[in-house]
Design a protein around this nucleic acid. Sequence first.
DNA 1: CTTGAATGAGACTTTATAGTCTCGTTCCCT
DNA 2: AGGGAACGAGACTATAAAGTCTCATTCAAG
Lengths: 192, 192
Amino acid sequence: MALATRERILEAAGATLSRNPNASLDQIAVEARVGRATVFRHFESRAGLLKALASRAIDETDRATRLAAADARTATDALRLITQAVVGAGESFRFLDSAAELYDEPEIVEAYQRQMSELADLVGAAKREGFIRPDLPTAWVVASIDGLIWAACRAVGDGELGVVQAQDLVWETIASGLSAEGAREDRHADQA
Amino acid sequence: MALATRERILEAAGATLSRNPNASLDQIAVEARVGRATVFRHFESRAGLLKALASRAIDETDRATRLAAADARTATDALRLITQAVVGAGESFRFLDSAAELYDEPEIVEAYQRQMSELADLVGAAKREGFIRPDLPTAWVVASIDGLIWAACRAVGDGELGVVQAQDLVWETIASGLSAEGAREDRHADQA
DNA sequence: CTTGAATGAGACTTTATAGTCTCGTTCCCT
DNA sequence: AGGGAACGAGACTATAAAGTCTCATTCAAG
């Protein structure tokens, strides 16, 4: 079955590349229990495989975003749902750490920038809801959410935390770290 | 001058590799304004260059750790000094993201694990001081500090934040994110 | 049973890059 | 001025991995 094979290759590529970002197609083929030639039957080239993997991660994020937008009543809630969804699907994302080649793919870069900008919008809305401290630069809020998600995925992959535990901890850390939390009167207006 | 050349190569390697983790020695040599052969005169091989780069980052961290241990009166303060020192030297560390090859270097791996374990000890001490919430797994605290430092280095490298601003924001985020609710007054020992 | 699509295995070519070597030049030191 | 160390340039080799091609095999559908 062609579809199952293609899927198995993608799965193996994600797993192998998250362990070793420079893994060869041969290693990926072995991991997928597939001939190396079959990889080329399903993907034009190594770049094509990487691109398909990235598209998959992007689609997964888009789906989570749409679900969150539908279910959540507040931007804060949407932020939480998206964050936890991405941590839950962490294995699909870890390979992106090293995917410098993808900077050459306009579609991927564009989609990534769109998602970051959507995240920034959500952070802006969460600021207006009073959840995110308005004095923090949005760029930093986005970057640190990214960093915490990455840390969580890594911890899960390394077996240091369970998935559910990691999801909770990430949100806990984001919340207590970035939320305005009413009872905070500390004058910190001094970050230029 | 041999020493200046070696230093220039290391500098260029750090800069080039942080932009493109798979950069060739040729690209690095060009960036260093040096002949490719000269790279091999100063370093045994590509692996040797990577190893030297990593050793440099490790030494820098050790120095910051010793300074912090000498200057700080509390583990919390030491944690802050170390964190900000690493963010300040971020350009020396970004290349490590992708340095999967370094897993083959026992000295590097050992030194890295030692530093992580020192960081974990410091986190433990900061817990006892009441700064870090004791109910958070130490592994998660270490991982998220790592993640936030990484996010800050990236933001600085991308020009989204200034170095000093990033140093402040990282610590601010760690503090409000991981500290026990009661211990909030100690944290505004304003940084240089 | 027959057929055709998907596959595995592996030979083969191509390309990029690591690593080696040589030679002429520059530049510093005495 | 003379001499040696460090360097730049580039030719050269070795190797690993990408990408192409062929052929025999499997396997499901008719």
